[in-house]
Structures are given as structure tokens and as C-alpha cells.
Design a protein around this nucleic acid. Structure first.
Lengths: 200, 200
DNA sequence: CTAGATATGGAACGTTCGTTCCATAAGGTG
DNA sequence: CACCTTATGGAACGAACGTTCCATATCTAG
């Protein structure tokens, strides 16, 4: 019953994700956001509440996509073990693309989790959700004997999740497909089970 | 042959490390640095060249300490395998202390490696050095049969190094000794050797 | 067609940023 | 004891920051 909006809220948030992911929170200015989204400052503040609120919305949206993507990849046909391998290799592929950017959740965790409580809360809950979801799938695979049961499924899930994020960091300090692949090979070896000996 | 400095250069850099580590590069202002170090802006610019230069000096200093500490811990008596375990547990202990901050190198890698080329260069070289040093020690341990030879020493070194950094990220999104310990247990299990089977 | 309501554009606000500049202080050297 | 060089303190700079405000535009409801 008044003048309608000239933008799509989802698109604006997607653009914001893109920018925050590329430059980080501090280094992204409101003017950058305005330019990149086409909004005017009044609209941004009226609809999204300011820079911090927009960032939180962007982070939530990014997390949701990330979670959905991961779930789809892990529940694809072919068995969980293969799917986990596929996730890691897909991630490496993604990271090696030009102008890639590693996950916004990772970036937010390092940059902001200690200084912005809402970010900490959001990420804590998000990681818990991802871990739980992943753990359920791993438990099933363990029951099927498809994955080693040497470590509890919940611990494995937590471990694999953070190793996936870790690829994004490795890529930042020396992008090399070889290094990433070798790293993934070792990280994924825990799916194969316990040591055959050697503990002193 | 002129007025002497009223501060110790090393101390100033140590203070800068502290600040950058706690708040990150962007969020640390020059005024923060002046207040925390006791310098006046003229002195800071005359002696350290400005914020970015001071940060690079701080990063170099931090990396040097980190490298030396790691080397000492790994070459302590008791065997490499035990020493690696000790490094991980010591790191967990450190991370759980109140007002801890994870490594400045980690923070710099995520925040700045893509936007500040000198940081990228410094970190790339640094990681390479650490990996090489670690790989040498691992190779010896493998020759002795103390550590599994299933993975190349260089790959293991790279893997373990980044998993150590990863503890700092895990701590940021949910500080829990249990999670960190369980994560470390899985990460370190690769020292015990290859799977006893289970590959499909 | 008018009245009310919401969205937009962009100037402007006060603050803080990194940096520069200059007068003053302080110590080694002749 | 001056002289020269370097260090210090702090005011000041222009630019950029996040945010606010208001006149104008654009729609729906009566």
C-alpha cells in the first residue's frame, strides 16, 4: 500500500555475501556495499538495519547454503565414504579457481568470533548443527562397516569438518593443488580405521 | 651522537604483536598502538615506518618466536612422537587460558594473505620453512621406525602443522577442552600408520 | 484525483582513520 | 659550554568511516 521496493532482498544479501567473503568485514565499507548492490544508504538502513545487521544476515544466508550443499553432497548415491572424498576434492577444485574465496563462515570465525558475540553464537550453533548432521551419516556408515569405527562418529564428524575448512587456509598461504590433495589424502585416511600398530 | 631513544625496539614490537593478535590488523588503530606502546606518533613513524610496516615487523617477530618454540619442543628429549603429542596438548592448554589469542600467523593468513602481498610472501616462506624443518625430524623418526612411514614425511609435516593451527580455529567457535582433545587424538592418529584395512 | 504511506537519492553529520608537521627536549661531540 | 643531530609530544590534516536526515518519487486506498 505504498511505493514498492526496487530491489530483491535475497539478491542484495547474496551480493553482500560476495563482498564480505572477498574483503572481510572491516575492509568492506558501507559505500562498497551500496555501490555493489545498487542500493542507496536510506534503503540499506531501512531494510537491513546497518552494516553489522546486514553482515549477520549475509552470514546466516551463507551458512544456510553451505549446510544445504554439504548435506546434498554427503547424501548423494555412492556411499558416504566416496561422498566425503568427493566433498574434499570438490572443495579443492573450488579453492583453486581464480578469484575464489574461502568460506565466509571460516573468515568470520577468525576475524569476528571473539569481538562480535552474535557472530560467535551464530557460528557455534551452526558448527554444532553441521557436526550433528554429519555425525548421524557417519554413524550409519560405521554401522554398515563402510567407515572405520575406531573413532566415535561425532568426533570424526568434527574432525573432518574442520579439516575441510582447513583447506581454505592452506590455499591462502600457497595455492598448490598438490599440497591440497596430499593434505586431503592424509586427513581422509582416518576413515580407513585405526593404526595397525606402532603405538609405543 | 644525538638524543637517545626512550623505548626498546623489541618491546615495542612485542606490544604490537600482542595488540594485532588480539584485535586483528584493521581493528587495531594507530592510536591503539601509540597508547599501548607509549610511543608518540612521530617516534612510531620515524622508527617503524607506519602501521603496515610495524605490522610486518610484528608478524616477522611472532613467526620467529613461533618457529623457535616449535623447534625446541620437537627436539626435546623423549622422542618425536611424544614431542608432537606434547606440542598439541601444550597448544590446547594455551588456547584454553583466559584471554588467549590464537596465532598471529593464522590470523594474518585468513585476514590479509589475499589483500597484502608482503603478508602472503612472508607467510608462504614461513610455512615452507616450518614444514621443511618438521619434515626432517619426521623423516628421522620414520627411519627409526618411531613413526609410521605410510605417508611421506613432508606431507605429514604439512598436515600436522595445519592441524595444529586448526586448533586455534576450533577454539574460536566453541571453546571446549574435550572437543580439542578429541580432535587432536584423531589428527595425531596418522602417526600410527596406515589403515589395517577397510578400504572398499 | 487526492491523501497517506513507504522507498529512494544524496547531501551532510560527527567521528575516527593513518599520516604529517613543527616546535621543543635531550644527549653526544668539538 | 655551545652545536648539531636525533627523539619526542601533540596539534592538525585530509580522507574515509558508519549513520542520519529530508526533500522527492512512487505506489495503493478511498
Amino acid at each position: 500500500m505504498a511505493r514498492p521496493r526496487e530491489y530483491d532482498e535475497q539478491e542484495v544479501i547474496a551480493k553482500a555475501v560476495e563482498l564480505f567473503q572477498r574483503k572481510g568485514y572491516d575492509a568492506t565499507s558501507v559505500r562498497d556495499l551500496l555501490e555493489h548492490t545498487g542500493l542507496s544508504s536510506s534503503s540499506l538502513y531501512a531494510a537491513f538495519g546497518g552494516k553489522e545487521q546486514l553482515f549477520l544476515s549475509a552470514l546466516r544466508a551463507h551458512a544456510e547454503v553451505e549446510q544445504l550443499t554439504l548435506l546434498q553432497q554427503l547424501t548423494a548415491p555412492g556411499g558416504l565414504r566416496n561422498n566425503v572424498h568427493a566433498v574434499f576434492h570438490g572443495l579443492i577444485q573450488l579453492l583453486l579457481e581464480p578469484d575464489n574465496n574461502s568460506s565466509l563462515t571460516l573468515r568470520a570465525a577468525v576475524e569476528l568470533a571473539t569481538s562480535m558475540p552474535p557472530v560467535f553464537d551464530l557460528l557455534s550453533e551452526y558448527i554444532q548443527e553441521l557436526t550433528d548432521m554429519f555425525a548421524t551419516l557417519l554413524q550409519d556408515a560405521q554401522d554398515r562397516g563402510e567407515v572405520s569405527s575406531h573413532f566415535p562418529a561425532a568426533d570424526l564428524a568434527h574432525y573432518l569438518l574442520f579439516n575441510a575448512y582447513n583447506l581454505g587456509i592452506i590455499e591462502r598461504v600457497g595455492r598448490s593443488r598438490e599440497k591440497l590433495e596430499r593434505y586431503a589424502a592424509i586427513a581422509l585416511s582416518v576413515l580407513d580405521g585405526p593404526s595397525s600398530g606402532g603405538r609405543q
